[in-house]
Amino acid sequence: MGRVIKHEAAVAMRMESGAVQRMRSFARGEATWAEVEGMTFEEAKAIAQVGCDLAAAGRLEEARILFEGLVVGNPRDAGAHAALGTVYQKLGRLEEAIAEYSAALARDAGHPVALANRGELYLRKGERQGFTDLSNAVEVDPHGETAAGRRARALVKSITLAAVEKLKQDAQQP
């Protein structure tokens, strides 16, 4: 019996030392909290899917909490940043949305969701950077695999058509 307890204690100590090791890595900034907690990408993806469903159902506050949790858990996840940005955008917190898109693009410069949505927000603000973001979004998602990519394509087309119309009108005026 004593032996069994000893064995269990040794295992517990080993586990504890592993957790301590991960905590130290986290404190040094080498590991994320998701790694400390042992959260895998598949688990994160499942959580993100719930967040997307909540957002689609209009339960934006709950979706925000989920995505904020994902971002805190793994700040290196560009997808989570971009998804949180879309929730902020819907909540009307546009500056925070742009900040999240920018954070996503800092990790993954070709993230279509971040590019498309930030591009649109910049255009709303009247900033020229929006064109670049939108056209980049179309380039990184040429087949419209994401909803954001499809919207970026439609926006680019729409702007182009409108611009041509305007140019024509300008040319006709003396």
Binding site: K45, A48, A78, A83, T86, H111, A148
Partner: peptide, 8 residues
């Protein structure tokens, strides 16, 4: 701003 999760 359709919420979607696109992983890298």
């Amino acid at each position: 701003a359709k919420t979607e999760y696109a992983a890298a």
